[in-house]
């Protein structure tokens, strides 16, 4: 395998080993997931109060058990699956959201997105009017008919008035970039881990919800990098050349700009992934992340607190976190060098 990678141009043996390790982990996780789904048997981790605190290498429990008699090796398998899957999906979806917004914001900038003056005012008025109505709908309630008809008639008439008043065809540029960047700047001052804690305290996360929380925490980074890369590439002459030959906006972004910023995004992806791994472990250690039926590295370490004699509860998950983060960082650094 390493030989094959070498021939492919990846010369660094260490990097190849890291790559191999992560690949095996992911394949194993996928295997466990599918097997688990298909067999439908109780392959899951079970509490066995008869075998509390077995040390490693004891019979039937290769890496021992914890204070509730759960098998550590099994927990590690499921934990790795959970943590890797959640962090990976979180980073992936986060990068999608961030890159989409970043590209949009960077490409349209402050003056490229234009809207007719009449549309602008009517739209603004409608949004404010509807928001007002939505907030006050509980306070005055005569009948359903009046409730619906009266405000809509009012809104329509005012819209028409605005439309008649503003005759100019002049297009108002929307400084999309300016406002979005300011908002995201403020948002990104909140640390990612805090965002996840905040959201988790509002709604106890399921795996799907947890991924959404991760996305909420990770996307600003991708937003800023993709916007910066896009602005850099946008000013290259070949983008002008693409516009001159009549290329549309979306193909310009996807076909001309994106391939040129792909590499730096890949590097960020690797580092963000590693960071999210640590964040996820921290949260499950604190007991904030997923509920107890989903094992995680952090939860194993947390159970070490129950009885500090069980050193294996600290060593093995700790080692896994360490190796995983190291591997991903190594790959990321290699990507940056190339």
């Amino acid at each position: 395998m390493t030989q094959w990678l070498k021939e492919k141009g990846l010369k660094d043996t260490w990097c190849n080993l890291c790559f191999l390790f992560i690949a095996i982990e992911i394949l194993l996780s996928i295997f466990i997931m599918t097997f688990h789904k298909l067999s439908g048997t109780t392959f899951s981790v079970q509490i066995d109060l008869g075998n509390i605190g077995l040390s490693p290498f004891s019979e039937g429990h290769f890496l021992g058990t914890d204070h509730l008699g759960r098998d550590v090796l099994k927990q590690l398998f499921f934990g790795t699956k959970n943590t890797l899957f959640l962090s990976f999906m979180g980073t992936l979806l986060g990068s999608f959201v961030g890159i989409t917004f970043g590209c949009f914001s960077g490409y349209f900038g402050d003056d490229k997105l234009k809207i007719k003056a009449a549309k602008f005012w009517i739209g603004g008025f409608l949004i404010i009017g509807l928001a007002f109505y939505a907030f006050n709908i509980n306070t005055f309630r005569f009948s359903v008919l009046i409730d619906l008809l009266l405000p809509s008639a009012f809104l329509a008439s005012v819209s028409l008035l605005i439309f008649l008043l503003i005759k100019s065809k002049k297009q108002i540029p929307i400084p999309f970039d300016l406002y979005v960047v300011r908002v995201v700047e403020v948002y990104s001052t909140i640390p990612p881990i805090f965002i996840i804690i905040l959201l988790s305290s509002i709604l106890r996360p399921s795996p799907a919800l947890f991924i959404i929380y991760c996305v909420a925490a990770m996307w600003p980074e991708f937003f800023f990098l993709s916007r910066a890369e896009l602005l850099k590439t946008k000013n290259q002459t070949y983008i002008d050349a693409a516009r001159v030959i009549g290329q549309r906006n979306i193909p310009i972004v996807f076909r001309h700009i994106f391939p040129n910023m792909f590499q730096s995004l890949l590097v960020l992806f690797a580092f963000a992934f590693a960071r999210l791994l640590v964040i996820e472990s921290t949260l499950s250690f604190l007991g904030i992340g997923l509920p107890a039926q989903y094992p995680g590295w952090g939860k194993l370490i947390a159970s070490f607190q129950m009885n500090t004699d069980y050193w294996w509860l600290l060593l093995f998950p700790g080692l896994l976190i360490f190796i995983n983060v190291l591997c991903i960082q190594k790959i990321g650094r290699k990507l940056r060098e190339n």
Binding site: T237, D240, A241, I245, G246, H256
Partner: peptide, 23 residues
């Protein structure tokens, strides 16, 4: 303007940045 773009073309100054390096 798009349909008219094919009538009006430009040749840029810098031969190094006017071609997309990934194409």
């Amino acid at each position: 303007l798009r349909p008219m773009r094919k009538d009006i073309q430009i040749i840029f100054q810098d031969p190094y940045s006017s071609l997309n390096p990934k194409h």
